[in-house]
Simulated assay, not measured.
Amino acid sequence: MAAMTIDTAAALVLVVDDSADAAESLALVLELEGFRTLTAHDGRSALDRIGQERPDAVLLDLGLPDLDGVEVGRRIRALADGDGILIVALSGHGGQDDLAATRAAGFDAHLVKPVDPGRIVALLGAPRGPAADPGTPIAATWSKTR
């Protein structure tokens, strides 16, 4: 499989955060960078949005009120075209157990809040595909980013 990149001009990014202010703020920043965005504030509505409009990327908080973000990520990966969606954990949860859980669920990256929006934009535009070491996610984003 060849490396894939997200075309900023056409990319649709779903921002999922139970804080409406946080989701809307990040969506606005991404729109200023040329992305199209959707928002959701819980796991079930995120999965509904994905079913209605297939996003290219999902920025996913882990501490959601209904389904936790890890379960949402797992369900995205289980979709017929789920492997084609970039899934990034964007959460205040960054302990070793959290990192292991998102990695096991198939997330592409795990960023710990607060994160510079420029780092998110760079990650969305970075090529992705099979890494030389399957245990090393794209852009070495599994470490805390502050």
Rank of each mutant, 00 (worst) to 15 (best):
E71Y: 00
Q96G: 10
I87Y: 03
D108T: 04
D98L: 01
S19G: 01
A40P: 08
A132E: 13
P114N: 09
Q52I: 15
E53M: 15
E71T: 05
L86M: 13
L79W: 04
G125N: 06
L59H: 12
G95W: 00
L90T: 13
R77M: 11
A101S: 08
D68R: 04
P134L: 11
G135A: 15
A131P: 00
A27W: 04
A132P: 09
A109V: 05
S91A: 06
V115G: 03
R77L: 10
G95T: 05
V16K: 05
L86E: 08
I85A: 01
D18H: 11
R77A: 12
E71G: 00
D17M: 06
A57D: 01
A105E: 05
H41Q: 15
M4P: 00
L67C: 03
T37Q: 06
T39G: 08
V88R: 06
L64A: 01
D97E: 11
L124E: 02
P130I: 13
A23D: 11
K144A: 12
L79C: 07
L14H: 04
G92Y: 07
D97N: 06
R49P: 05
A57K: 04
G95S: 09
A139C: 14
I6T: 09
P137I: 01
G82E: 11
G94R: 01
D83I: 13
M1F: 14
D116F: 13
M4C: 08
V58D: 02
R146N: 10
G106Q: 10
L38H: 08
R103Y: 05
L60V: 09
R119T: 13
G63H: 08
D17C: 07
S143C: 10
A80R: 14
K144Y: 07
L111N: 09
G92M: 09
A46L: 08
L124T: 04
A78Y: 07
L30I: 01
V16M: 07
A3H: 12
T5A: 01
V112R: 04
L86I: 00
P55G: 08
H110N: 03
R75E: 15
R75A: 06
A78D: 14
I76Q: 06
P114V: 09
A109K: 05
V29M: 07
L38E: 08
V16F: 07
T102C: 14
A105H: 04
T141N: 12
K144Q: 11
G125I: 00
A126M: 10
P65N: 02
I85W: 03
F35W: 07
K113Q: 11
I6G: 00
G63L: 14
L123W: 06
I138Y: 03
A139H: 05
L86A: 07
I85V: 08
G129K: 05
A22T: 08
L62Q: 13
A126D: 11
L14M: 07
L26D: 04
L124G: 00
S143G: 14
L28E: 11
F107C: 14
K113Y: 06
